[in-house]
Design a protein around this nucleic acid. Structure first.
Lengths: 208, 208
DNA sequence: CTTGAAATTGAACGGCGGTCAATATAAATT
DNA sequence: AATTTATATTGACCGCCGTTCAATTTCAAG
């Protein structure tokens, strides 16, 4: 077999990523194999390695798409309101995605590159974008001269929510409590923000 | 080859789990293979399947040991003090374990049984024990008639800390912030507990 | 000494990620 | 139009993996 030119290189990448997404969504992480992806797009396994360096590389690109998707969903329902209200709406969208595409979500976070490789810059920028949404929601809590603390707070909140979702999704929470993810994340949100309000000072005059 | 009787069945299990622990600790998760474990204990691969149903089963037992170890370390430095102080000490021990045995820690949380199988009861009890430590530390914050809320709070806190550690450990935090795990977990701890104090009422008279 | 039960082996199976010489096609050159 | 060059595609191959199981060897009981 030789050159086919049924598809451009970009079309092939899209084909591969579409196939990969479908496979993960339908049959779970363990079903994502090079042979299966290649088969689903009607090509031989070797072709996949012309498009991506290896499976890890393909997964990073798939995760980038998932990140875009997630970011888009979180951006809907913008609306105004207190940080609690805004974040609660975002949480809705997040949990909905987690429920509907648990394997894609799982892949997004569970996947780890080998120690000697780092995530590319364009990927970091996508993560930044999501984090920016959280940051904006938290903005009213921080005085003008403390905006730099926003980012840390956003990171902490985001990572914490992730922890709850992660343990839930791997079945490690149900072993220990019957409380729903919904309730737990709301508990975190409420208490963490209450704490922030305090430490940032309701009117800027409490604590240092 | 036939019956050797160099070791009792229990000794063999210990041999296997010791080997597995060493392999994970030294060479990471991906190095944990049946052949390697068997080789390290001086037996053929098949023997491993007389002791454990499969690799998943062995991993659950290894994780149980890790859980015991973790629980033990968290129980040292008991001491008195405010919930913040007690939990901060526990956090020290936790982060120390995370640093020294990152792969064992990773295996403990990342491993997921197939959907049709559940973690055994004796395993759930071990998780419970760790959670109990957090619960005790939070105890002073809850009035006598609200002790049942303790558990939820402990779960949320534990899961949240896990999220920060998890993202850190998979290199997904460094992409987005240069703040240390240490600082982030302290931020969570401080704000969450501050929030709890408020919602539980400093003297039981604020909010419902 | 025989017999039966249990432990141990290691080859075998199907599948995996990844590689690469061979090949077939498209584009460039003559 | 014929020839060359460049490139896309293949699929057999490598060394692994988890897991199985018939065959074998040893121990213990009768």
């Amino acid at each position: 077999m030789g050159r086919r030119s049924d598809h451009s290189r970009e079309e092939l990448c899209e084909l591969a990523l579409d196939a990969a997404r479908r496979i993960v969504d339908e049959d779970g992480l363990s079903a994502l194999t090079a042979r299966k992806v290649a088969g689903a797009m009607g090509y031989a396994p070797g072709t996949l390695y012309n498009l991506f360096g290896n499976l890890d590389d393909l997964i990073v690109h798939l995760n980038a798409r998932t990140l875009d998707d997630l970011c888009h969903r979180l951006s809907l329902n913008p609306g105004a309101g207190s940080p609690e209200e805004v974040l609660s709406r975002m949480l809705n969208a997040y949990l909905e995605f987690l429920t509907d595409h648990s394997s894609l979500w799982h892949l997004l976070f569970e996947h780890k590159l080998p120690d000697d490789k780092e995530l590319p810059d364009w990927y970091a920028r996508k993560v930044d974008k999501v984090l920016g949404l959280v940051e904006n929601a938290l903005s009213p809590l921080f005085a003008e001269d403390r905006q730099n603390q926003k980012r840390d707070a956003a990171c902490v909140l985001w990572a914490s929510l992730h922890g709850i979702c992660s343990l839930y999704q791997t079945g490690k929470l149900s072993v220990v409590t019957s409380t729903s993810v919904r309730e737990m994340t709301e508990t975190l949100l409420a208490n963490f923000i209450a704490g922030l309000r305090l430490s940032q000072g309701a009117d800027g005059f409490v604590h240092t």
